[in-house]
Amino acid sequence: MSPDHTLPPELIACARAVRLLAMDVDGVLSDGRLYFQTDGQEIKAFHTQDGHGIKLLRRAGIEVALITGRESPMVSRRAAALGIEHVYQGREDKLAVLRQLSARLGLEMEQVAYCGDDLPDLPAIRRSGLGISVPNAPAYVREHANWVTQRTGGHGAAREICDALMDAQGHWGAVVDTYLHEKL
Protein backbone atom coordinates (compact mmCIF):
# COMPACT_ATOMS: atom_id res chain seq x y z
CA MET A 1 0.00 0.00 0.00
CA SER A 2 1.50 3.32 -1.10
CA PRO A 3 0.61 6.82 0.05
CA ASP A 4 -1.83 8.81 -2.07
CA HIS A 5 0.92 10.91 -3.62
CA THR A 6 4.52 9.94 -4.10
CA LEU A 7 7.59 11.86 -5.14
CA PRO A 8 8.77 11.86 -8.73
CA PRO A 9 11.44 9.15 -9.16
CA GLU A 10 14.23 11.69 -9.70
CA LEU A 11 13.64 13.10 -6.17
CA ILE A 12 13.69 9.83 -4.23
CA ALA A 13 17.43 10.05 -3.49
CA CYS A 14 17.01 13.62 -2.17
CA ALA A 15 14.10 12.51 0.03
CA ARG A 16 16.07 9.59 1.44
CA ALA A 17 18.69 12.02 2.74
CA VAL A 18 16.19 14.27 4.57
CA ARG A 19 16.59 14.45 8.36
CA LEU A 20 14.76 17.77 8.87
CA LEU A 21 11.49 19.00 7.38
CA ALA A 22 11.02 22.73 7.87
CA MET A 23 7.85 24.51 6.80
CA ASP A 24 6.31 27.92 6.63
CA VAL A 25 2.97 28.17 8.45
CA ASP A 26 0.58 30.54 6.66
CA GLY A 27 -0.12 29.07 3.24
CA VAL A 28 1.45 25.68 4.04
CA LEU A 29 0.03 24.47 7.37
CA SER A 30 -2.92 26.83 7.03
CA ASP A 31 -4.73 27.99 3.91
CA GLY A 32 -3.01 31.35 4.18
CA ARG A 33 -6.09 33.31 5.15
CA LEU A 34 -6.03 35.31 8.38
CA TYR A 35 -9.12 35.24 10.59
CA PHE A 36 -9.69 37.80 13.33
CA GLN A 37 -12.45 37.93 15.92
CA THR A 38 -14.02 41.27 16.83
CA ASP A 39 -11.75 41.49 19.87
CA GLY A 40 -8.70 41.24 17.61
CA GLN A 41 -7.86 37.64 18.51
CA GLU A 42 -6.43 35.68 15.61
CA ILE A 43 -7.86 32.32 14.60
CA LYS A 44 -6.11 29.77 12.38
CA ALA A 45 -7.43 26.55 10.93
CA PHE A 46 -5.09 23.56 10.77
CA HIS A 47 -5.77 20.22 9.07
CA THR A 48 -5.80 17.23 11.44
CA GLN A 49 -4.27 14.94 8.82
CA ASP A 50 -1.28 17.28 8.54
CA GLY A 51 -0.84 17.06 12.30
CA HIS A 52 -0.97 13.27 12.34
CA GLY A 53 1.52 13.12 9.46
CA ILE A 54 3.91 15.35 11.40
CA LYS A 55 3.64 13.08 14.44
CA LEU A 56 4.34 10.02 12.31
CA LEU A 57 7.29 11.71 10.62
CA ARG A 58 8.80 12.61 13.98
CA ARG A 59 8.37 8.99 15.14
CA ALA A 60 10.26 7.93 12.01
CA GLY A 61 13.21 10.00 13.24
CA ILE A 62 12.85 13.11 11.09
CA GLU A 63 12.95 16.47 12.88
CA VAL A 64 10.27 19.05 12.09
CA ALA A 65 10.58 22.83 12.28
CA LEU A 66 8.21 25.73 11.69
CA ILE A 67 9.63 29.02 10.42
CA THR A 68 7.17 31.85 9.93
CA GLY A 69 7.38 35.57 9.35
CA ARG A 70 4.37 36.27 11.54
CA GLU A 71 3.93 35.76 15.26
CA SER A 72 0.87 33.95 16.54
CA PRO A 73 -0.01 32.21 19.79
CA MET A 74 -1.98 29.74 17.66
CA VAL A 75 1.25 28.56 16.02
CA SER A 76 2.82 28.01 19.43
CA ARG A 77 -0.21 26.04 20.59
CA ARG A 78 -0.31 23.89 17.45
CA ALA A 79 3.43 23.20 17.60
CA ALA A 80 3.19 22.22 21.27
CA ALA A 81 0.28 19.87 20.55
CA LEU A 82 2.34 18.15 17.85
CA GLY A 83 5.56 18.05 19.89
CA ILE A 84 7.43 20.33 17.47
CA GLU A 85 10.40 21.75 19.36
CA HIS A 86 11.83 23.96 16.63
CA VAL A 87 9.48 26.92 16.21
CA TYR A 88 10.69 30.27 14.88
CA GLN A 89 8.19 33.10 14.62
CA GLY A 90 8.62 36.66 13.42
CA ARG A 91 11.51 35.58 11.20
CA GLU A 92 11.62 36.91 7.64
CA ASP A 93 15.11 35.55 6.87
CA LYS A 94 14.06 31.93 6.80
CA LEU A 95 17.25 30.69 5.18
CA ALA A 96 19.36 32.16 8.00
CA VAL A 97 17.16 30.37 10.56
CA LEU A 98 17.35 27.15 8.57
CA ARG A 99 21.14 27.32 8.34
CA GLN A 100 21.48 27.97 12.09
CA LEU A 101 19.12 25.12 12.96
CA SER A 102 20.82 22.72 10.55
CA ALA A 103 24.22 23.54 12.03
CA ARG A 104 22.90 23.06 15.57
CA LEU A 105 21.46 19.66 14.57
CA GLY A 106 24.68 18.68 12.77
CA LEU A 107 22.99 18.53 9.37
CA GLU A 108 24.06 19.61 5.91
CA MET A 109 21.54 21.58 3.84
CA GLU A 110 21.22 18.52 1.56
CA GLN A 111 19.57 16.77 4.52
CA VAL A 112 16.88 19.44 4.77
CA ALA A 113 13.50 19.65 3.08
CA TYR A 114 11.78 23.03 3.17
CA CYS A 115 8.23 23.88 2.10
CA GLY A 116 7.04 27.42 1.53
CA ASP A 117 4.55 29.39 -0.53
CA ASP A 118 5.77 32.97 -0.94
CA LEU A 119 8.76 35.20 -1.68
CA PRO A 120 10.31 35.08 1.83
CA ASP A 121 10.49 31.29 1.39
CA LEU A 122 12.41 31.34 -1.90
CA PRO A 123 15.96 31.33 -0.50
CA ALA A 124 15.16 28.36 1.78
CA ILE A 125 13.37 26.49 -1.02
CA ARG A 126 16.30 27.02 -3.38
CA ARG A 127 19.05 26.09 -0.90
CA SER A 128 17.45 23.03 0.71
CA GLY A 129 18.25 19.55 -0.47
CA LEU A 130 14.55 19.14 -1.26
CA GLY A 131 12.78 22.43 -1.96
CA ILE A 132 9.01 22.09 -1.88
CA SER A 133 6.10 24.38 -2.60
CA VAL A 134 2.33 24.06 -2.70
CA PRO A 135 -0.01 24.60 -5.67
CA ASN A 136 -1.57 27.68 -4.06
CA ALA A 137 1.82 29.44 -4.19
CA PRO A 138 2.43 31.94 -7.00
CA ALA A 139 4.03 30.50 -10.14
CA TYR A 140 7.22 32.50 -9.50
CA VAL A 141 7.66 30.55 -6.25
CA ARG A 142 6.58 27.13 -7.56
CA GLU A 143 9.05 27.30 -10.45
CA HIS A 144 11.97 27.28 -7.99
CA ALA A 145 10.80 24.21 -6.07
CA ASN A 146 12.04 20.70 -6.75
CA TRP A 147 8.54 19.45 -6.03
CA VAL A 148 5.06 20.98 -5.83
CA THR A 149 2.54 19.04 -3.76
CA GLN A 150 -0.84 18.14 -5.20
CA ARG A 151 -2.71 19.17 -2.07
CA THR A 152 -2.89 22.84 -1.16
CA GLY A 153 -1.68 24.52 2.00
CA GLY A 154 -4.02 23.94 4.92
CA HIS A 155 -5.70 21.10 3.05
CA GLY A 156 -3.29 18.20 3.47
CA ALA A 157 -0.10 19.46 1.78
CA ALA A 158 2.00 18.80 4.90
CA ARG A 159 0.57 15.28 5.20
CA GLU A 160 1.41 14.64 1.55
CA ILE A 161 5.01 15.69 2.24
CA CYS A 162 5.27 13.60 5.41
CA ASP A 163 3.84 10.51 3.71
CA ALA A 164 6.15 10.91 0.70
CA LEU A 165 9.23 11.28 2.91
CA MET A 166 8.29 8.22 4.98
CA ASP A 167 7.67 6.24 1.80
CA ALA A 168 10.99 7.27 0.24
CA GLN A 169 12.84 6.33 3.42
CA GLY A 170 11.17 2.94 3.71
CA HIS A 171 8.99 3.70 6.76
CA TRP A 172 5.60 3.77 5.06
CA GLY A 173 4.82 0.04 5.23
CA ALA A 174 5.59 -0.15 8.95
CA VAL A 175 3.44 2.93 9.63
CA VAL A 176 0.43 1.44 7.88
CA ASP A 177 1.00 -1.97 9.46
CA THR A 178 0.73 -0.51 12.96
CA TYR A 179 -2.83 0.56 12.12
CA LEU A 180 -3.85 -2.63 10.32
CA HIS A 181 -3.07 -4.98 13.18
CA GLU A 182 -5.75 -5.30 15.80
CA LYS A 183 -4.70 -4.66 19.34
CA LEU A 184 -6.31 -7.00 21.82
Rank of each mutant, 00 (worst) to 15 (best):
H5L: 08
H5I: 12
L7R: 01
C14A: 15
C14E: 12
A15I: 03
A15Y: 00
V18Y: 04
L20F: 04
A22Q: 05
A22V: 10
M23N: 05
D26T: 09
G27A: 12
G27S: 12
V28L: 01
L29R: 05
L34F: 09
Q37R: 11
G40A: 08
E42T: 12
I43K: 00
A45I: 13
A45K: 07
A45Y: 05
F46E: 05
D50P: 09
D50Q: 04
D50G: 06
K55V: 15
R59D: 09
R59Y: 08
G61D: 04
I67P: 02
I67S: 02
G69F: 10
P73V: 14
P73Y: 14
V75S: 01
S76W: 11
R78A: 13
A79T: 14
L82C: 07
G83V: 06
E85F: 02
Y88N: 13
Y88Q: 11
Q89N: 08
G90C: 04
G90Y: 07
A96Q: 13
V97E: 09
L98Q: 11
L98E: 11
Q100P: 06
Q100T: 15
A103N: 11
G106R: 07
L107M: 04
E110A: 15
Q111W: 00
V112S: 00
L122K: 06
A124R: 03
R126W: 05
R126E: 10
G129F: 06
G129E: 04
G129T: 07
G131R: 00
G131V: 05
I132Y: 00
A139L: 14
V141T: 03
E143K: 11
E143C: 13
H144N: 06
W147C: 02
T152G: 02
H155E: 07
A157R: 00
A158G: 04
I161H: 05
D163A: 14
L165V: 09
M166H: 03
H171P: 01
W172P: 10
G173M: 07
T178V: 15
T178L: 12
H181W: 03
H181A: 11
K183A: 10
K183N: 06
